[in-house]
Design a protein around this nucleic acid. Sequence first.
DNA 1: ATGTTATCGATACTCTTATATCGATAAATA
DNA 2: TATTTATCGATATAAGAGTATCGATAACAT
Lengths: 210, 210
Amino acid sequence: MKELTSVSVPTVRRLPLYMAILKEIEPTTQYVSSTLISDRLNLEQIQVRKDLAGIGVTGQPAVGFNVRELIEAIEQLLGWDNMRDAILVGTGNLGQALLGYDGFARYGLNIIAAFDSNPEIIGMKIHGKPVFDIEVLSSLTERMHIQIGILAVPSKVAQQVADALIEAGIHAIWNFTPVKLNVNNNIIVEQVDLAASLAVLSSKLKAVNK
Amino acid sequence: MKELTSVSVPTVRRLPLYMAILKEIEPTTQYVSSTLISDRLNLEQIQVRKDLAGIGVTGQPAVGFNVRELIEAIEQLLGWDNMRDAILVGTGNLGQALLGYDGFARYGLNIIAAFDSNPEIIGMKIHGKPVFDIEVLSSLTERMHIQIGILAVPSKVAQQVADALIEAGIHAIWNFTPVKLNVNNNIIVEQVDLAASLAVLSSKLKAVNK
DNA sequence: ATGTTATCGATACTCTTATATCGATAAATA
DNA sequence: TATTTATCGATATAAGAGTATCGATAACAT
Ligand SMILES: NC(=O)c1ccc[n+]([C@@H]2O[C@H](COP(=O)([O-])OP(=O)(O)OC[C@H]3O[C@@H](n4cnc5c(N)ncnc54)[C@H](O)[C@@H]3O)[C@@H](O)[C@H]2O)c1
Ligand SMILES: NC(=O)c1ccc[n+]([C@@H]2O[C@H](COP(=O)([O-])OP(=O)(O)OC[C@H]3O[C@@H](n4cnc5c(N)ncnc54)[C@H](O)[C@@H]3O)[C@@H](O)[C@H]2O)c1
């Protein structure tokens, strides 16, 4: 019954921050306090406690939270306990950077292959990952039961490639293009919205410069 | 007096989405309804109307909002009317992708130069932008009154490079590293948190897979 | 042993954000 | 001209997220 009330999105977004601290201190400490975590992240203790309560972990008064237990709970909630395979489409500027990023392994994400439409790139390996023709997308994806597609193609073809990904059996799209994708609501789309991020920065800067 | 109540962050984050639609329809239409915008973005009309009211634009009942007026209001609020110069530090995988991204111009951001510590890269041009030695950071930045620094260096040196940026007179840091930077609160830090984004995607996928 | 301190859980409260309702306006249509 | 329809603004309500308070617990120092 506990699982019915799902964790809030803001909480989920903070979990990786907690995880980084936990992984760092795990070798040295068995228990951690919400105060320690909140201090490092410039948050309030109470917010950390509430988040942790939200994911179902309970601490011990006057002692703290069991580090190991916390790590396992977060990993399980985020599915970082089992590696998830993903494919990436669009091996341009951004796509190549993502292929070369070793940080994803820490988040349980494993990019097994890339796809592109450019004949000059197809057949190559980029950062050790093979690049296939976008035309053979479905055969590979379906066969290997890949669930996650990373979208890094030019904006004009974003929708069309997204459709192809879904056609090929992808359930979740990590969308790095600024295009608002039109998809069925059984498909999960997570947008990496740089424009939004930049907008926040710009408006704050504007406010300071009065 | 209107400006004292600043626009909320969620609203600011949606403004670029509105802008994209406005720019697209500007040549063909003079007025736009909140319904049209909300339909394209899968939002509620009322939320769009409230956002637009929040930035000080007022529409006409039974007619809609003046497209040109909206564009100008948003551009002004985000400072996208005047190009802002920025510098980028760390020309690795991600830094090079960012240097090659032409989309920033649309957001009023102009990366004028890059900095790195790797002698093999220093002196080169990447996507037309010169790469300087990180050692000469302050001389260039201060002289040209650059306000924005884009941080794309390895995590271990992120704090130290951030300190150098601030020392060199930077007021705002667009932080692509997963490091929580420790800075004075007169410095604006905007974090691009891929881990958070991936966490949201993962948790939703987990939920769907039962 | 006793008191002090750090910590948690539960509950309540506040603030922000999102959503709903409704009357007024003007364009389009009959 | 009268009626219907799409739209906005203002105000109210609901939902969500963050913050505060307080009693209980256990470690540690006196
Ligand atoms: N470069 C950045 O830093 C950056 C930042 C934010 C957002 N983005 C967005 O990411 C996307 C990619 O940007 P980029 O700079 O890497 O562009 P890019 O042009 O460098 O790369 C696009 C790649 O997609 C491939 N491609 C084109 N059509 C295809 C298709 N139908 N199927 C498969 N592959 C196809 C191209 O061959 C190319 O390799 C764009 O939507 C851009 O707006 C990029
Ligand atoms: N590559 C990605 O897709 C990606 C995605 C998300 C986050 N990130 C983060 O972005 C950062 C950079 O990632 P990357 O993959 O580009 O790494 P990278 O190793 O490819 O590039 C880092 C660059 O920084 C330079 N550098 C090192 N020390 C420096 C210093 N003291 N001063 C100036 N420059 C210095 C290096 O010479 C190198 O060119 C990392 O913190 C990473 O976690 C990367």
